[in-house]
Design a protein around this nucleic acid. Structure first.
Lengths: 174, 174
DNA sequence: AGGTTCATGTAACTCGTTACATGATTCA
DNA sequence: TGAATCATGTAACGAGTTACATGAACCT
């Protein structure tokens, strides 16, 4: 599972530009994948070479031109191939948790700020995902996708709750 | 946040060999970091060069020799420096969720197996973490570390529950 | 005047994985 | 006999990030 696979997946839903792909990564995909422009554009070029996608340049008024990429039959085949491959292990680098794990080496004040900051950023993320969910409500979106989105929201909410509780219990014992 | 930092963190608790460091990654750290031998050993060599760690070779009977690494004052300083740096974004590559997200392109049967498999592996992980928690119970382990472990268990349990529910609701609607 | 959004792109780099090699011991 | 555990190590490779460049339009 690498960038190629995920981008083909996104394009299997509907055509999109590199910029729009990035947007999906930072919203609905945020809970299970992310990629930067520095990888998206080269992958799009590579997929074009491999004839898995095609593009057409679209002129817009008041905005720069954009290249709208569409998946080809070959691309769909490649994505089907990805879907039938065994699921890889979850890979995670969660810096906050490492900080928290070793926060006995911080002052109580530093630890408090660490946790408070994390709560703030998570809350923001939650609100964005909730807003996205509202946008999708009513529309004919596949139930699997809805489930993925809702699971993401639930997970983040759980972390927020637990952190709030931990912060609270920390204050009372000092 | 890279391998160097985390390994210094592990050694800040107590001396350990490369092999033992790997074990910690695959147990208590599994929820927020992982690394392979291919990175652990070179990092240990590098940290030795930088005088952040030292090692002594320990002979064992019935087992190969091992190198026990200890953190130095310089190493502690470097780790403190890491702890005071701003927290980086969580990075995640969760292949299962990508599969599930696009599982409308699978047969109902394939989707069922996909979810069942994930539930099985998660359950196993949970049991291992629960066992670890039992091992730690009673011992004088820092409350932040306990919290990290418990949060990991809770998160995994939540995913299991949600997947079970989703699987069930899928079956009834077909 | 300066910041933000939209939009695409490349080069250098870094981190970490995969795959291999070695080898003793223990267990079924 | 063969698999698993313990234990360390390296070389080749790959994937993706960071940082940079470009540039128009819009908002304050």
């Amino acid at each position: 599972m690498k960038g190629d696979d995920i981008i083909l997946g996104i394009l299997s839903e509907k055509p999109a530009s590199g910029y729009e792909i990035k947007e999906r990564f930072s919203t609905i995909f945020s809970n299970f994948y992310n990629a930067s422009f520095g990888s998206i554009y080269p992958i799009l070029h590579k997929l074009t070479d491999e004839q898995k996608v095609t593009f057409k340049t679209v002129e817009q008024d008041g905005k720069p031109n954009k290249k709208i990429y569409s998946i080809t039959a070959q691309g769909r085949e490649a994505f089907q191939n990805y879907l039938s491959r065994p699921v890889e292990n979850k890979k995670i680098k969660w810096d906050f948790m490492v900080h928290l794990f070793y926060s006995d080496q911080l002052t109580p004040n530093e630890r408090m700020h660490l946790i408070e900051n994390e709560i703030k950023t998570r809350r923001q993320e939650c609100q964005e995902l909730e807003a996205l969910k509202q946008t999708l409500a009513g529309k004919d979106v596949d139930k699997n996708k809805i489930f993925c989105l809702e699971l993401g929201i639930k997970q983040k909410n759980m972390v927020i709750q637990e952190l709030e509780w931990f912060l609270d219990s920390n204050m009372h014992t000092q």
